[in-house]
Nucleic acid binder design. Structure first.
Lengths: 130, 130
DNA sequence: CTCTCTGCAAAACATTTGCAGTCGG
DNA sequence: CCGACTGCAAATGTTTTGCAGAGAG
């Protein structure tokens, strides 16, 4: 699995800029809309491809909203962590699950599972949206 | 929110039968394919609608696979619980997250969130698929 | 120059919906 | 009978892909 080269293009920079100025999780569609609104011309496919490679390179966090849509956000920390996400506006707080990590691995191993990953997201209504 | 009536039809019985004989999570598509294979004629839309109402009635557990597809399984227990799911074959073990539940609520409340829900799933390769 | 990246339009999927006919209770 | 349920086909919405041209290094 060789890291392929990654070029710095106008479009890539634009995507990163939007992610940089937005605290919360955005879907590819929303991100694309914002770029268009501020006058950037960029293809939707490019947004998807860019977010895809950024996720691969672990430069963004990816999670799925309750209806299965993928949403992205710049990584805040390198450590593994989870999120508290507002169902309504997408506002996000980064949280840590103290024992969850080790617990998940333990239980999985116990049942003979390997190559273990886990998802843990908390959804709710933030004070602003309630 | 009044519970609407729910009729017992051939199609609904067929869906329940498949779910009953399968331990693991199935997507609507897979479920539909199985029904077709065993000679049942049933519309895909009906499968979706049936699973939807069953989820509403809390007769099935629903979770999303890593690629965002919805998967369903008959509830094993009434208690809130989580799953260890094989990424490859869908084989599932029901697990309990000891402190996770209360922890999630606590953290959310702490940040002013209300109407809190959470998702926690563990994915891996089961011994058979490794 | 070379090879990755981009745009666009088409394709691929999962899922939902409108509607007329069917059938459970 | 009545209204919930079904099948089908069309509509939606997200995400992927093929391909020819553009541009980063």
């Amino acid at each position: 699995m060789v890291e392929t080269e990654r070029r710095t293009t106008r479009q890539r920079r634009a995507v990163e800029a939007i992610l940089g100025e937005c605290e919360d999780f955005l879907s590819a569609q929303e991100l694309h809309m914002r770029l268009r609104q501020q006058g950037d011309t960029i293809g939707l496919a490019t947004v998807y491809r860019t977010l895809g490679t950024m996720a691969q390179d672990e430069r963004v966090d990816m999670l799925r909203s309750e209806d299965g849509e993928a949403r992205y956000r710049l990584c805040e920390t390198d450590d593994h962590h989870h999120h508290l996400v507002c169902r309504e506006c997408g506002h996000t707080v980064e949280i840590e699950g103290p024992a969850v990590e080790s617990w998940a691995d333990e239980v999985a191993t116990e049942h003979g599972f390997t190559d273990v990953t886990h998802t843990l997201e908390v959804f709710g209504l933030c004070s602003g949206c309630a």
